[in-house]
Design a protein around this nucleic acid. Structure first.
Lengths: 195, 195
DNA sequence: TATTTTAATTGAGCTATATCACGGATTAAC
DNA sequence: GTTAATCCGTGATATAGCTCAATTAAAATA
């Protein structure tokens, strides 16, 4: 996003898919967010940190992952342009983060603190509605993911991903796609060559 | 729930953990829900049906599952007293249900249609807040489940379940617990005997 | 451009979990 | 209270996917 004006338009267009805001209302929303820029490989949050934010991706890709005690990384979300992400538990219950969030490309976000979000929702019925709907879509996506993990093989999950997010495949390394699918790098490699 | 009065108290207590309603406001809420009774084994919704509801469990257990083309059943949720459940996508996007919901015990619910929920939220800021918070907890639970499916073995997931919901274990058959965990019945049996 | 780092492929053997199959033990149904 | 259905444990075998290891290919970085 080259200019602040373009960012505003991008964000406002996103919101307007769910609620229509007046110019004043949109100003009020913007005042609750901070614009942030991150370099590729830079961390947005790290496991254990407190005071995490909820983020709207303007540009770039963010990987939200958990590294288990054995050192293996498990990916919860890959958030691209127009996606929201947060460590939902840490954010909403003001707990230490359980996940890392780091950037796979140079990334720009609008980010909001818990207090600002609650204040905004308390003051703006439209925005409370907006966030309720956003969490609804989040739930739907997670239910689908649980179902895929329960019922589909690695190969099936891989094909589903290719169909659902073809752009991901081009922008993200296979190592990361493997961790997202819950398969080893080697197995994924064999799946993509076979078919 | 033996009497209508007891049901009201149970439901109101549940809501009051998040928002405080006046008597009039609670009346307004109740008017949007319908009380329903189901027998053990009875279906609440079936895959493909339209017009699904969101349900609050007053009594009993409901199994929310998907049966894949090969006939294998995968369990998304086991909802007990004070839990909410719905086929979130079907409910919110007014789509045909992807899941079955059936009762593992005689069950009683308060159920709400999509229109009534939206009407209630539009009229009551408190209830919009309540439902936003409920979907927040739902998201947290689903993120945890995804993480468990990605990072834990069958045995670890089994132990986590025993710790988190000890009562489930007593009320539900092992076949069903296995389907919830994403493990075969036989493997679960071996896990519980070994340790 | 050269050099280092990181990513992807491929092979060989291993392990967790699935499947199939049976019999005894509960539980439900008539 | 007898019969039918379902639940649960256990053995034998099969297999999807993992791990370890070595090799090549492709990006970063200097």
């Amino acid at each position: 996003m080259d200019t602040s004006k373009n960012r505003h338009i991008f964000f406002r267009t996103h919101i307007s898919q769910i609620v229509q805001l007046t110019d004043e209302e949109f100003e009020q929303v913007l005042n609750c967010f901070t614009f942030r820029k991150y370099k590729k490989h830079q961390y947005i949050t790290q496991q254990g940190e407190i005071g995490s934010h909820e983020h709207f991706v303007l540009k770039g890709i963010v990987k939200s992952s958990y590294t288990d005690p054995s050192g293996k990384e498990h990916i919860l979300q890959l958030a691209m342009e127009e996606w929201w992400f947060s460590d939902i538990n840490a954010f909403n219950n003001e707990q230490p983060a359980t996940f890392n969030a780091d950037c796979l490309e140079d990334t720009e976000t609008y980010s909001i603190s818990f207090e600002n979000k609650e204040k905004l929702c308390a003051e703006s019925k439209k925005m409370e509605y907006f966030f309720r709907k956003k969490y609804t879509s989040g739930n739907i996506a997670l239910q689908k993911r649980v179902l895929a993990l329960l019922s589909s093989s690695a190969g099936e999950r891989y094909n589903q991903l290719l169909i659902q997010y073809p752009s991901l495949y081009k922008r993200v390394s296979k190592t990361i796609i493997a961790a997202y699918l819950g398969v080893s790098r080697e197995t994924l490699s064999r799946l993509s060559s076979t078919g």
